[in-house]
Amino acid sequence: MTTRNVRTVRFISAAMGLILFGFVVMLATREGGTGTASRSPLIGQLVPAVAGVGLNEATFDVDDFSDSWVLINFFASWCVPCEREHPQLAEWSRRHKKDGVVVSVPFGDTEEDARAFFADHGGDWPVLMDGDAAWAVAFGVLRPPESFLVSPGGIVVAKWQGQITADEVDRVVNDLEAKAADR
């Protein structure tokens, strides 16, 4: 065989080897698919419009609460973490009787089931039906539960995916309040 041929074959296999090596390194250094982290383009933005008549017949408009904290919670009656975090929402609502309000929005749920859920688990804050899922999309909700904290002034300051606790939310609230006081 000619040396030229040997060289060609070696060259091609070396090139292939290099490409494949890079490919394996890429696979090796990739972190496992842990799903979407809480990256939300909404943080730092004005809260999307959330307004309507709640299940308890009271009207609610997020714009009317521009001087208090608003915790918007997307939930579903069939979701177990939602059930678990519900007392925490009640707790936070109790702590912030004066300067805060919780709003629950059923996501992937029927009005009837949501009503039953609140009848079972209590909670006197507004529950708004998201008719054509406009809010869910505006907030980029993936799966319940998901919660958004809106600061006085109507800016979304935090997003949680999954179960939350009142303390967790208050940590953010206190943090921001401290910062505001410094200024």
Binding site: M1, N5, V6, V9, R10, I12, S13, A14, M16, G17, L20, F21, V24
Partner: peptide
């Protein structure tokens, strides 16, 4: 497997004509 394959083909390549 990739290393073995590429190396073997590279090694024997000249005889594969």
């Amino acid at each position: 497997i990739l290393v073995v394959s590429v190396a073997l083909v590279g090694w024997r390549g000249d005889q594969l004509r």
